[in-house]
Each structure stands twice: as C-alpha cells, then as structure tokens.
Design a protein around this nucleic acid. Sequence first.
DNA 1: GTTTTTGAACTGACCAGTCAGTTCAAAGTA
DNA 2: TACTTTGAACTGACTGGTCAGTTCAAAAAC
Lengths: 194, 194
Amino acid sequence: MDGRTRRREDTRQRLYEAAVELIAEQGFSATTVDDIALRAHVAKGTVYYNFASKTALFEELLRHGIGLLTDDFRAAVAGLPPREAVAALVRAQLQYIRRYRAFAQLLLSEMWRTNREWQQTLVLLREQAIGVIAETVQAGVDSGDLPADLDVRVASSALFGIGLVVAVDWLVFQPDRPIEDVEQSLLSIVRRVA
Amino acid sequence: MDGRTRRREDTRQRLYEAAVELIAEQGFSATTVDDIALRAHVAKGTVYYNFASKTALFEELLRHGIGLLTDDFRAAVAGLPPREAVAALVRAQLQYIRRYRAFAQLLLSEMWRTNREWQQTLVLLREQAIGVIAETVQAGVDSGDLPADLDVRVASSALFGIGLVVAVDWLVFQPDRPIEDVEQSLLSIVRRVA
DNA sequence: GTTTTTGAACTGACCAGTCAGTTCAAAGTA
DNA sequence: TACTTTGAACTGACTGGTCAGTTCAAAAAC
C-alpha cells in the first residue's frame, strides 16, 4: 500500500468515525454531510470525492462495521467446544461493542426499522453476523451440548439482540460497571444457551 | 365529554397513530409533518393546532405510550407473589408490544440515543417503566424468592431491554411465531430472574 | 505528472412553522 | 321551534430557511 492509498484509507476511516458518531447521536436524516465533514476535519468536497453519496457512505459504513464484528466472532469461536464457544461469542460481542460503542448504538437504532432505503443491506449484514452465532449454536445442538429442542435461528438472533441491548444499555447508563460484571450477568441470564 | 372535546381527542389520537407508525418506519427526522398530516387525514395546520411543534407531538406521544405500558405493568403484577409477578411482567410486555408494535420499534430506536432534544424526557419515562419492574424484582429479593446477590437496577433494565428486542425481533422477522412460544423462550432465557 | 484534498459557490428540492380564512356544533335568544 | 352568535377546530397556501448534491479552480501531497 503506497502513501496515496494509505492517506486515502485514512481519510475514509476518519469519515467513517465521524459519521458513525453523529448518526448514533442524531440519526441518519438529522446528520448533515456538512456535520460529518466538519467532525472529520475534512472538506465537504472530500466526502464526495470518497463516497458517491451520503447514503453510500452509510451503507459502506454498515458493511465495514459488521465485517469487523463477524471477523471477531469467527476468531473468538475458532477451535472451541460448543458451550465455551457460545460464551466466547458473548465476550467477543461485549468487547466489540465497548470498542465501537457508537456503531453498536447505530445498529440498535436501525436494525429493526422498516422501509428505509438501506434496509435490505442491513438485513443481509445481520444475517451474516447472526450466521456465525447460528453455526456455533447448531454445532452445540448436534453434539448434544445444547438442548435438542432449541430453535437455532430464534436462539441465535435472540442472543445477538440481547447482547446488543444489554451492552449498549451498560455503556449508556452504567459505564462505570466493569466489563467482567456485565459479561457475568449476560451469561447467567442466557444460561439455557450458554 | 362534549362533541368538541370528543372530536379533538379523536384527532389527537389519529395524529399519534400516524406519527408513531411513520417515525417507527423512518425515524423522527425523516418523518415530515406533512407526512403525518397526510396519513392522519388531517390538514397540516391541524397538527399545529393540536401540538406546539413536531417535537412536542413526539414527546407527548412518548409520554402517552409509556404511560399505557406502565399501567399495564402495574395491572399485571397486582397481588402476585414475586416470581409469578416477574413472569406476568414479561407477558404484559409482550402483549403490549404486540398491540403497539410501532411504538415498541420507535422506543427501541430512540431509547439509547444521546444528544437529542427529547433525550431527557425519554430517560425519565424509561425510569418510570423500569421502576415498576424494579419494585417487583426488589420484592422478590427481599422475600428470598430471588437471589440476594442480584443487582436489582441492572437486572430490571436488562429485563426491560431484552423483552423489547426479543419481542420486536419476533414481530419484524418471525411474525408467524405464536406469542406463547416467544413467551416461553423469553422466560427460559431469563430463568435466573423469572 | 498524477492523485487527492480543499473550500467556496450554486441549485433545486424539501420542510417546519405561520396565518388569514372557513366550517360547524353548541349555546344563546326570542 | 327557528334563528343568530360564538369560538373551537380545522384548513392549506405561503414563507423563510436548510440541506444534499454538484462543480470547479487552485493547492497540497506524493
């Protein structure tokens, strides 16, 4: 990667970060391109040099964020037996959300919305992340480590959603609580699966 | 209540319904007052005759919706022993969300946002609803029906958040699943509390 | 020399909020 | 009963402002 590419990558990264924060705070529509450029310390023209439109920027942002999460999930479960793997997923999700809090808030706000232009993209990305969880849970059911009557799809999306709310709630309303503590609560709450 | 009052009440109700649906679908900023008026079959001026501003309409909407939920919560737990009371809360929340799906979606989208003008209002309302849960959980801890080491505040807000995501997820992604089924999953997931 | 960024200027669509005017149920009057 | 008045409720065209998106010449970075 040469200097140019690196610089551009950096600009895009700054735009992602600025956009993610603003959209998490205010929502997509309330966030203006001027706001984003300002917070990223970049000229408005730069936004349009790097992204086709405000919507395109947002969609790429979603892809980027979920991509990272999915990678973390895969890394977390690698080689672990089912029950430990589920616990590892919970841990990975918490750590991810602590690290990318704004992105998680944004997801929480947009994930169950209908009728928005990027809805389809988001549903697909959601599938991608929940897919990893589902594979793990399925393996647990197959190996007999998890109850056979467990509905894998439902349990997986519930697991994902619960992790999301509990973690975001933690960061917004009780940021001082240590992460281990939250992890414990989460695991004891979802005991049937983990 | 005379004809005038009745009529006005009716108009306000229609505005609430229109606004709640549109905001759940698109978010607050993306929803225009013209949209709301159109869907409520009312002139734009009527919106401003009945509410001071778009934001005021939204705030009153939040108050109205959370008020109903809180009432349902109180009615559900009345006279029940702790563990049954917690289960009754879960049931009440599910039923409420099935009945006012759009409102629940809207809550899910807005509850963990920061920096919005109505944020303070929402935090207060949230306290109100979670308060009822907390009272119930506290009673359970006091009576020894629930573990003494349970952090009541945390458990209550987790309970609330989890009910919200799981129910909305159900309505958005698996609407055909029967409510009893969802209730079962929820209760078995939150077994430590319920 | 090429790529990337800058920032200012512009356009056209859109939107919150306003207000002068209309409607009509109910209260008042004879 | 029949007529008149009142004002609450509603209407929708209009205004002032904002914003996404475009363009571009010039500068900066590589």
